[in-house]
């Protein structure tokens, strides 16, 4: 373990490795706070309009398949597990399991996006995308619900795409660059990001797919 840390590069602006790692982690958490506020605006809109159009929410959520949403929750939770195991492998300086777990995470993320693709295309076919072609024009609450559905899951899906890009880049660099294998910080930080994306979905799933009645 101690041999591992001596190989870690210590930036000249830091006192020691502990401070360096803590500084990176704090920076990531600050970024995650801005992300909470970013999604928070949409969640606030969701709460206010759900209070205003309760029937629209109940009608709107019938367009969503709770089984597909549950499958995606399962996929994201599993990808969080593989991500956590990748971070663990990186900390223990085992770069091969690290690459394996990162590849698993990216594959699961693609699985999530594929399920989303089928969900989205079904809604476009059935004209329940907000806009002039919306099939239930007499129910503004329902259109608003679908609008928030696409805004929330779209922004979340965009975060998944960014996650795929960053995790893939780190995986390729870990394979190609020996120097990257000593530094677990990039994996640790993208891990924090990935778990945050998972948490957003943990809230989106019951809020969008599991409305009773």
């Amino acid at each position: 373990m101690s041999a591992h840390e001596q190989e870690l590069h210590l930036g000249h602006q830091f006192e020691d490795l502990k401070q360096q790692i803590e500084s990176y982690t704090i920076g990531m958490w600050i970024f995650l706070v801005t992300e909470v506020m970013f999604f928070g605006g949409l969640f606030t809109a969701y709460i206010i309009y759900r209070a205003k159009f309760p029937e629209g929410w109940v009608h709107g959520h019938h367009h969503l398949d709770w089984r597909l949403g549950g499958l995606n929750t399962l996929i994201l939770l599993t990808s969080s597990l593989t991500m956590a195991l990748a971070v663990r492998a990186a900390m223990l300086n085992k770069w091969k399991p690290q690459v394996l777990f990162l590849v698993c995470t990216v594959l699961l993320a693609f699985g999530f996006m594929i399920v989303k693709y089928f969900e989205y295309s079904k809604k476009f076919r059935e004209h329940i995308v907000p806009g002039p072609l919306f099939a239930h024009k007499d129910d503004p609450g329902q259109e608003l619900f679908m609008g928030l559905y696409f805004a929330l899951t779209g922004l979340h899906g965009f975060h998944v795409l960014i996650g795929i890009l960053v995790i893939s880049a780190i995986t390729i660099r870990t394979i190609n660059m020996r120097r990257m294998r000593q530094d677990f910080i990039p994996v640790e930080l993208v891990g924090l990001y990935w778990h945050f994306v998972d948490i957003v979905w943990i809230f989106l799933y019951p809020l969008l797919y599991l409305i009773s009645k």
Partner: peptide
């Protein structure tokens, strides 16, 4: 347990609570 915030530094924990705090203020 996945983001191991409990083992992260005190400042990280303060930032995480800050996120919840301002989210609740907004709502």
């Amino acid at each position: 347990f996945f983001m191991h915030l409990g083992k992260a530094g005190r400042l990280s924990r303060i930032w995480a609570l800050t996120g919840i705090f301002f989210f609740l203020i907004m709502i």
